[in-house]
Design a binder for these strands. Sequence first.
DNA 1: GCTTGTGAACGAGTTCACAGCG
DNA 2: CGCTGTGAACTCGTTCACAAGC
Lengths: 251, 251
Amino acid sequence: MPPAHNGGDRPIAAAAPRGRRGDGRDPVDYRLARARAVPEATVARLATYLRVLSNLDDGSITTVSSEELATAAGVNSAKLRKDLSFLGSYGIRGVGYDVSTLTEEIARTLGLTVHRSVALIGVGNLGQALAGYAGFATRGFRIAALIDVDPARIGTMIRGLEVHSMADIDRVVVEQEVAIAVLAIPAAAAQEVCDRVVSAGVTSILNFAPVVLNVPAHVDLRKVDLAAELQILSFHETRKAAAVLTRAVDQ
Amino acid sequence: MPPAHNGGDRPIAAAAPRGRRGDGRDPVDYRLARARAVPEATVARLATYLRVLSNLDDGSITTVSSEELATAAGVNSAKLRKDLSFLGSYGIRGVGYDVSTLTEEIARTLGLTVHRSVALIGVGNLGQALAGYAGFATRGFRIAALIDVDPARIGTMIRGLEVHSMADIDRVVVEQEVAIAVLAIPAAAAQEVCDRVVSAGVTSILNFAPVVLNVPAHVDLRKVDLAAELQILSFHETRKAAAVLTRAVDQ
DNA sequence: GCTTGTGAACGAGTTCACAGCG
DNA sequence: CGCTGTGAACTCGTTCACAAGC
């Protein structure tokens, strides 16, 4: 991996298990420390498990087996059990998992028990759609600020939030305690805006611009490349079409 | 993996290398068959390489080394070379890769040399943003049809396209030769719509609804879960905060 | 020389299958 | 007896390091 770049598949080193300390104070949340290092692949699935659990929670079901939860999440049960085992031992043998306990533990692991404010940079088509996306609020995130560079947009209100100038980013990050920024801006502007956002103190970025961003090592970066998703599907379409031709020729 | 479900991490079995055939005809594109099975992880990166190459192509550069291309794509050069080696041997030792040849080979591998029409299902906030996303067109895809279930939207024009009813899906898929559908609809409706789209003949789906979809084995499914992306970043935020606390306590 | 292409070593992630326990 | 939790086997993906070849 090149220096100063975190790709989507960055190596992890999760909440380090602490050794014994001599003093009696306990300023660190031990429930975090107790968890073993959680593999990156597991973290990604925890979000799905949490969503499935919250659907279950509405009903009268108080307990789920790994088999039930795995089926609902679209994975196999061994994988689900291994995933959950990284959080600790919250299942009951012969019974299953308590829905509310498990929900709580996953939410804690994902850091959703604390306040998470998000700054949305870029309020074009995609940005406005993201600003109105209800799924963020229901799953633990508050869009705390909208920012754009277009003078025509600055000062306008979108979904109850005023659009600020990029010059306000430092103040916004501090005042709203923003740790996560979502970039919904053109590719050409993305690296510059990214640098600015990082210097304002943001330490996690979700990038929708189709460009490779370089960030310092302490900043986590994830990307959503919409066209790439279609291209991957296109690859498999080609493969399926070739398989049909191959079969036709073989017989 | 549960039956009849393809997750995002589906096992691959790419364009099967063909054995010798006795007849002289050659109805199958051998350039597809020539490529070895391409790992899923490689396919995902090919889209990035293609994008980076197309930026390079504008200039006067006709050749790139694996080191240059890898840096621009945010991967290391060994990985890039191994990725490209799955397509065949298109590099020149001591020199590098010819930009236009490589662009062509990657595009062919991803199936972008043929016409790819996409149906967009759901023209709410996100759907409209996707309908207007220029990146689809510039990277090989044409949004050929818009569909929604809301009677208020059906018949309206969005970006030059009329919004059709779900009842038109069968006709649209055939007439426009749609193989890929993008679902930008509420979670509650997603499985039903998905089933309908599959029965109309769509064989690849990109799902934006935060729900696990079940599809037949011949259908490829990818998902974009926006809230999950933020939750993954939130996990790492928690880890970083814990690391700071841990260090503070240790010293 | 310099850069590709790749076997081999390594590491991450998944699945198996069963011990451990309620 | 049923279901969790997990070592062990296995598969997939990455990195190393160097032979091959322009």
